[in-house]
Structures are given as C-alpha cells and as structure tokens.
Amino acid sequence: MNRLKWWIVGAFLLVILMALSYTSILNSAGSNPERASVAETRTLSVDHKQKDIPVFFNKQGEKEDEDVETKLKEQANQILEVLADQNFKKLATFVHEEKELLYSPYVNVSESDLVFQPSEVGAFKQDTEKYIWGVESGSGYPIKLTPVEYHKEYVYQADYLNPDEVTFDRTKNRGNMVNNIKEFFPKAHIVEFYKEGQEEMDWSSLYVVFEQNKQGEWKLVALVNDEWTI
C-alpha cells in the first residue's frame, strides 16, 4: 500500500515538473527573439516564394510570344504556298472576316489601298476587271491590273518559298520609302519574306500581316509588297 502511495506522489510531481518546464520554454521564446525567429523564418520563406510567382508568369508570357511567332511564321508559309499555286479559294479562308484583305504595292500603306472581302478574294481567278491598285514609283502611272496580274507582279513576284531572310515584326526601311505597316496596323504581327536580286537594287519583300479576330484566331489582313523605289 505504501508503494502505491509513493508511486502516485511521484507521478504527480512528474506532471508538475513537465508543466513548469513547458511554461518556461514559452516565456523564453517570447522574450528571446532569436528563439522566436525559427517560426518567423518559415513564414518569411513562404512569403518570399509567393513574391516570386509573378516572375514565373512573366517567363510564361515570353514563351507564349515565342509560340505566336512560330505559329504565324508557319501560317505565313502556308499562305505563300497558296499564293504560289494561285489558289485564291484557299487564300480566302485565311482572310480576316471583318477587316478583310488589304493590298498595297508599297510599304507606305494608306486608306486608298484596295481592300477585298474573303468572298471576292476567292473569286479572283474569275475576276477580269482591271483595278487601280496604286501608282507606279517613278513614272506615276496607275497600276491598272486584274487580280491575277497584280499577284504576279506585286505579290508573289519572287520565290518567297525559298527566301534569303525571314523576319518577324521587323519594319525597318529596306529602301527609301517609309514603312508604316505597324502604324497602320498597330495590333498586328508581321512576317516578312525577303529575296535578294541578281543586282543591288533588284531585291523584293512580301509582308504578310495578321490580326486577331473576335475568336482569338490570327487572320490575314494585308499583303504588302516592298521593292526598290525611286
């Protein structure tokens, strides 16, 4: 019986000592900032990771831009294949439904340039009307051609499927005419196919211009020719 009594007393004292020890640890953490810093450091490390998240999203944004460039270069190549075959019905499927398709014989784009609906583009082979597409550089004579003739002389006038250079959103002047494509189409992406000539001034470029439609698809809004001008 005495052993049982001493065992109970010993257990009670052990519980009291453990309680006092735990209270002492808590008080020490509250008064000693170095010990409290363990919990605070964990909190700060979590906050730091959260602040790094926007940087991750910025990198994703850059990757998306790279994907757009790759996609539009591929799409522009498909359009070149269609132009080389004069498959205007297929070309019409690339044209922006609302903004339609603008043709400019030179890189200084203007409101006076001709614009065609997708259905009109699809019927170019059957269209024998001679339109005035602009005026010739130097002579000032009107560029009066049928759609098929214009494509031969001012759109697919070189082997752009085998270009000497392909650029994306580059609008620096190659010749002496001001390139205002980006100002005229501020929301556009532009793929340029450049072809060197046999002589210094015998070069040409075709700019394929894309803008998004309401569905977020990149559609063709302009085909712009560039060449040496006087």
Rank of each mutant, 00 (worst) to 15 (best):
E129F: 13
K51T: 13
I181A: 03
T23G: 12
V121K: 05
I25W: 08
Q198M: 14
V191W: 04
N2P: 10
F56D: 11
A29G: 00
L220R: 08
L206E: 04
V178F: 11
E120N: 03
L20E: 12
K71L: 13
K144F: 00
D127G: 05
D127E: 03
R3E: 15
D159S: 05
K59C: 02
P142E: 02
F185D: 04
I8K: 13
G138M: 04
K49R: 06
V121Y: 08
A84D: 15
E200W: 03
K89S: 13
A11R: 07
E165V: 00
T43Q: 08
N32V: 13
Y150I: 04
V38Y: 14
A222S: 03
L101N: 09
L44M: 09
V191R: 05
N213G: 10
K130N: 06
F193Y: 14
D113S: 02
Q78N: 10
A222H: 03
N176F: 06
S31A: 09
N225A: 07
L206H: 08
E66M: 07
E192K: 13
K71P: 01
D164M: 01
E211R: 09
A222I: 02
Y154C: 06
F57C: 02
M1S: 14
D164T: 03
N162T: 11
I190L: 11
Q126Y: 00
K51G: 05
P54H: 07
G122Q: 03
D65C: 03
T23P: 01
K152R: 02
Y154M: 08
P105Y: 08
